[in-house]
Nucleic acid binder design. Structure first.
Lengths: 246, 246
DNA sequence: GTCTATACAGAGATAGAC
DNA sequence: GTCTATCTCTGTATAGAC
C-alpha cells in the first residue's frame, strides 16, 4: 500500500506517543488536529490529480484512498461522499485560480492578464492539476450547480474576467464585436481547451509548444473581428486585410 | 455470439417456419433479414441519441434497450457489448460526416466547406445527433483507438479537411501562419466545441445564434494571424491593425 | 430471436472492532 | 480516527425457456 506523503498515520503508534509524553492536552489536540488537516490535504491533493487525469466518472474512491495511503473508510470521516469531496476539490481549484490572478504583476494590462490566465490553466491541466472543470457531461455538474461555495467562487472568477475583457476592449486589444458573454465563455472554455489533448496526442509538439498554440488560438480569436465570414456566398475578402494583422 | 454467415441455427423458429409456410426459403430469409436490420437500426439510432445526450460513461444499455423498445438481451444478439455497439455508432457518425462533405455543392470554395463542416457538426450536436466524439476522457477512447474501421474513417475525414485547409491557405482565406496539423485539430475540436453547451446554458442566445457564435470563433481564428501576442511584455499592437480586419 | 431471470463485477457507502 | 470487512446498488453480460 503506497503512502505517498511518507508520514506515519497509524493511530496506535500515535496513541503510544501521546501516553508516554506529558504534553498538555492543548498541544495534544493541536497535534491531532494538525494530523487531521494533513490527511485531508493529502486526500484533496490526490483527488485533484486523479480527477484531472481520469475525470469524475472514471475516478474511484478506491484509487483516491490508495494514492493517499489510507483506507477508503477514512475518506468518509472527512467528506460526505464522492460528490462532496470532488466539489471541495473544484472549489479549491477556483480559489487557486483566483490566487493566481491576484498575484499577477501590477504592470500587466488587461489583455496580458487574460492571456496569462489561459496559459496558466492550460499548463496546470497538462500537469494533472486542473483548477477548472473541463467535463461537460459528467455527473458532478449537478452537484456543482447546487453547491453555493462553488457558484460563488465561479461568479467571482467570471466577474474578474469580464472586467478585464471590458478593459481590453477599451484598449483595443480585444475586438469590440465580441459580446461580453461570448468573450467570457470563450476564455473559460479555451482555458480547458480539449485541443491540448488532441495536439499532445499527435506527438508533433512539446508540452510547452502545445500550450502556446492553444493560447494563440484563443488570443487570435479575441483580437480578430467576429464578422469575418468567408462563407457568405459571394464575398471573398481580400488577402491584404488578413496580412495587415500580422 | 455473432453469427457471421447470417444463417439461422435456432431449432425452434427454423422448424416452425419450415412446417407452416410454403414460401421459398429465399423470401423467408430476406424478410427476417429485413426485420433484423430494422431492429439493428433502431438500436443504433437510439444509442446515437443517448450517447450524444449523456456521454459514454453515463449512458447505460438499459436505457438503450428501453428507448429502442426491446429487451436488453437482444442488444447482445446484434453487438458484442457496449464498446462494440458504441464503436459502430461512432463509425457511422464519421461516415455521415463524410456523406455531408461529399454532398456539398461544387461551387463552394475550400474555406466555405470548412465552415459548413463546423456548422453542421455543431448543429447535429445540439440536435442530439453528434457524429463526432466530444469526450476526451471517456473509457470508449481505448476501444476506438483499437478499432480499425474507426481509425480508417477518421483518417479519411482528416485527409479531406487537410486538403481544404491547404486550398484555403493558398486562397488567402486561412492565415498561412497556422501549421496544417494545428489548423486541422482546431477544426475538429471546434466542431465539437464545449462552448455550445456553456453558451446555451446562459440562455442569452437561441439555438442558432449559439451555433453561429461558435462558427465565428473558429473561422475568425483561422483567418487571423497566430502571431498576435498582446502579452509579449512591451509590444502593444496598434488598434488600427485590428480594425482593418472588420 | 426475443423474452425473463440471473450471474458477476465494480464502486459507493457503512458497521463495528480497536 | 483508522482499520477490515461487509452491505447495497447499479450496470454489464449471460443462461435458458419458448
Amino acid at each position: 500500500m503506497a503512502n505517498r506523503s511518507g508520514v506515519n498515520f497509524d493511530p496506535y503508534v500515535t496513541n503510544i506517543n501521546l501516553t508516554v509524553s506529558n504534553r498538555p492536552s492543548f498541544s495534544h489536540v493541536s497535534f491531532r488536529d494538525m494530523m487531521h488537516r494533513a490527511r485531508k490535504e493529502a486526500i484533496l491533493e490526490e483527488c485533484t490529480r486523479l480527477l484531472s487525469e481520469r475525470g469524475y466518472d472514471a475516478m474511484t474512491l478506491d484509487q483516491v484512498a490508495e494514492a493517499a495511503g489510507m483506507a477508503k473508510a477514512v475518506l468518509y470521516k472527512h467528506f460526505k461522499g464522492k460528490e462532496d469531496l470532488c466539489c471541495e476539490v473544484m472549489v479549491r481549484g477556483l480559489e487557486r485560480a483566483q490566487g493566481f490572478l491576484d498575484g499577477l504583476p501590477a504592470r500587466m494590462v488587461a489583455s496580458q492578464r487574460l492571456q496569462a490566465f489561459v496559459r496558466w490553466v492550460l499548463q496546470a491541466q497538462l500537469n494533472s492539476d486542473a483548477p477548472l472543470l473541463a467535463e461537460r457531461k459528467s455527473e458532478i455538474r449537478h452537484a456543482l450547480k447546487a453547491s453555493e461555495p462553488y457558484q460563488l467562487a465561479l461568479q467571482g472568477l467570471s466577474t474578474r474576467l469580464e472586467e478585464w475583457i471590458v478593459q481590453a476592449q477599451e484598449a483595443g486589444h480585444i475586438h469590440p464585436g465580441w459580446p461580453l458573454l461570448v468573450a467570457r465563455q470563450m476564455l473559460m472554455t479555451r482555458a480547458v481547451d480539449p485541443m491540448v489533448d488532441a495536439l499532445m496526442h499527435t506527438q508533433a509538439y512539446s508540452h510547452d509548444e502545445v500550450v502556446e498554440w492553444c493560447v494563440k488560438t484563443c488570443m487570435a480569436t479575441l483580437h480578430a473581428s467576429p464578422e469575418y465570414l468567408p462563407l457568405s456566398q459571394k464575398a471573398k475578402p481580400a488577402k491584404k486585410s488578413m496580412l495587415a494583422v500580422g
